[in-house]
Amino acid sequence: MKIGVLALQGAVAEHIRSLQLAGAEAVTVKRVEQLEEIDGIVIPGGESTTIGKLMRQYGFIEALQQFSAQGKPLFGTCAGLIVLAERIAGHDQAHLSLMNMTVSRNAFGRQRESFETDLDVKGIDEPIRAVFIRAPLIQDVGEGVEVLSVYHDEIVTARQGHLLACSFHPELTDDYRLHQYFVDMVAQSLATAQ
C-alpha cells in the first residue's frame, strides 16, 4: 500500500512520518502523473488559498476528482479539509467540491486564538490531542456525511465514504491513530477493488 501526500505547500514531512508510523509507505506528490502510483492521498495543512491556486495551476482539481471517482480515499487536514469541501462560506468558488459540507475558514479566530485540546473522535478509543491552528470548522453537513467529532458544538471531523476530513493537525503530535484510521480506509478500499 502506497499513500501520497500532496506536496505543493504545507506540512508535508509530518504527514509522511505519521503515515509511516501507521505502517504505510508514504511518498510526496508534486505532479498529477504520480497519482497513478498511489492508493490514497493526504491533503495537508498549509494555506488553503495557496494550495488551491497551485492545484488549479497544475491540473490537480480534475485529476483528484477522477482519483476520488475511482473510490480511492482522500484525507484532508485543516487547509485540506477546506480543499475537500463542496461549499466554503463567503466564497463563490470551492476547490475539489467532493464532500457534501459547508466549511468556514479561520473560524476560531486569528493565530492568538489557536489552541490544543483533548478531543473524542468516533472510532478511536481514547481522546486524541488535537492542535487547531487558525483552523476552519464544518458549519453543516449534507446527506452521506458522518460526523466523527465535535468541539463546543462545532463539527471538526467528518467522513463521507472514502473521504475523511478534520479541522485540526493530527500530524503535529506523535499520536498517529487518526492516520491509522485513514490507512485502514485505504486498505479497505484496496480489498474492495480486488
Partner: peptide
Amino acid sequence: METGTSRVKRGMAEMQKGGV
C-alpha cells in the same frame, strides 16, 4: 483548552513550509 503552547506556535510555522 490551551492557547499559545509551543506546539501551536511552532505548528503555525510548519504550515508555512514550502511557501513564500
